[in-house]
Amino acid sequence: MIPGSFNYHRPASVADAVKLLVDLGEDARPLAGGHSLVPMMKLRLATPAHLIDLHGIAALKGISRNGNNLVIGAMTTQHELLASDEVAKSMPILHEAALLIADPQVRYRGTIGGNVANGDPGNDMPALMMTLGASYRLEGAGGARDIAAADFYQGAYFTALEPGEILTSISVPVPAAGHGYAYEKLKRKVGDYATAAAAVVLTMSGGKVATCAIGLTNVHETPLLAADAAKAVIGTSLDAATLKKAAAAASAIMAPAADARGPVEYRKHVGGIMVTRALQRAASRAK
């Protein structure tokens, strides 16, 4: 568990970072908190010849309100998300989910940018970002572009990030006042990735679900939006039959791998249960 040798760079601006990435080509990787990348390097599953540390770029940090959006700099740590009053107030599901990531040590270092850019289906933030309708700002040699989180994930560790691009910030629409939310995550222990997790953001009107978005973590090679499941609950009061239908619709799109967390059948089954529980808890919180 000793990484191979690599060169270390610490640019002071996004432009410099992009230039390094372009010049050094495929052998270079951005380094954020290092809590996904460094373990891979220690196992020599990743062997980048150059690490471009983004910690020297002040512009990549911070949380700000921009109209109806929260804009979160890529290098904002999970701990900073948890410490933010703005997040707690306007986007409590982000607080709830961040608290379920690993442990304090990991959260002090791990960044939201690294978490969403990594492309690991086990990461919690991607499905949540899809549920919230977030978009990512990517900056490369050719300038900046925005891409919806829902369009970003292509396969395990495959994303829409082009060579030479850096994810600089995330823009998340603030959910409607009075919305209900829940992030339900089944894990074996603190520090474990989800066996299955579901994010739900909904609004209720007259005791019935008015709007709903459901995201799924670690039950497929990419994070998922469970659109059919969300559709199934609209206009209902989340009675038992509806919940069952939603869980079944969500399970139908899951294709998890069998691993030490359990066989495929189990992970799909509990994936459905996470959806059910998240819906119930979200509804109970909606005003």
Binding site: D103, R188, K189, G191
Partner: peptide, 16 residues
Amino acid sequence: VVTGSFMDFFMPTAVE
């Protein structure tokens, strides 16, 4: 051997 690290070899923390 499929349980070669603390990710899969259950080592409870104070929480569990």
